Simulated assay, not measured.
Amino acid sequence: MKDTLKVGATHRFSFTVTDAKTVPQLYPESPDFCAMPAVFATGFMVGLMEWACVDAMKPHLDDGEGSLGVGINVNHVAATPPGMMVTVYVTCIKLDGRRVSFHVRAEDEVELIGEGTHDRAIVRWDRFTPKIKEKAAKIRR
């Protein structure tokens, strides 16, 4: 990773919630999820927070590097209906070797909907991918 990412760096990322990002779509195989209201799912909010952090890190990574989520601690405090825009505000709060920590805050067009912290580990894809292929080869069916 380049030395350009600093503690205190901020980033903003927006996304309009679609029907595909609501609770019934999180696990359509689950009758329990399908019976819930069609509002922005916590799982998709977490994914959006990760996406915002990935986007914030992009200009600071070297060629062949990426990042993986390794920690998440957030609260989802308000429901958001489809059609509303959600904006995630990201602040880098800690750099520790190949690990980067962020404060994340998500707001829809009306109010705060979620907040917490997210940690990412920087990886080299040419090292990570072979390990996953090796693991997948161990699947017993």
Rank of each mutant, 00 (worst) to 15 (best):
D19T: 04
T91V: 07
V70F: 03
G43P: 06
K133H: 12
P31Y: 06
T16D: 02
G64S: 05
L5I: 15
P130Y: 07
R127M: 12
A137Q: 10
V7W: 03
K131P: 10
G71V: 07
A20S: 13
K133L: 14
A9D: 15
G83S: 06
Y27A: 11
R120Q: 09
D62T: 14
H11E: 08
R99F: 09
C53G: 03
K21P: 02
I72G: 00
V39F: 09
A136E: 13
I122Y: 06
D63I: 12
I139N: 11
R127S: 13
P37T: 05
R120C: 05
G83F: 01
T87E: 06
A136N: 10
T117V: 05
Y89K: 14
Q25D: 09
V123C: 09
A41P: 03
S67W: 00
G114L: 04
V17S: 01
K138Q: 12
V7Y: 05
G97Q: 02
V104G: 00
G64W: 13
T10V: 11
H60F: 03
A121S: 07
V104T: 02
C53L: 07
E29Y: 04
N73F: 06
K135P: 10
R140Y: 09
F44H: 13
V86Y: 01
G114R: 04
I93N: 06
R98S: 14
C53H: 10
T16Q: 03
E109Y: 02
Y27C: 10
I72S: 03
M36H: 09
S14C: 02
T18V: 00
N75E: 15
V70D: 03
K131W: 08
D62A: 15
T117G: 01
T129M: 11
R105D: 12
A41D: 06
I122C: 08
G71H: 09
T129I: 14
K2Q: 14
Y89A: 15
Y27G: 07
A106Q: 04
P37L: 12
V110Q: 14
R105N: 12
G8A: 01
E111F: 12
G8N: 03
V23H: 04
F44I: 04
S67G: 09
G71S: 03
E111N: 15
P81C: 08
W125P: 08
R99V: 07
G116T: 03
P31G: 08
T18P: 03
W125H: 09
V110H: 12
V54A: 15
E134S: 14
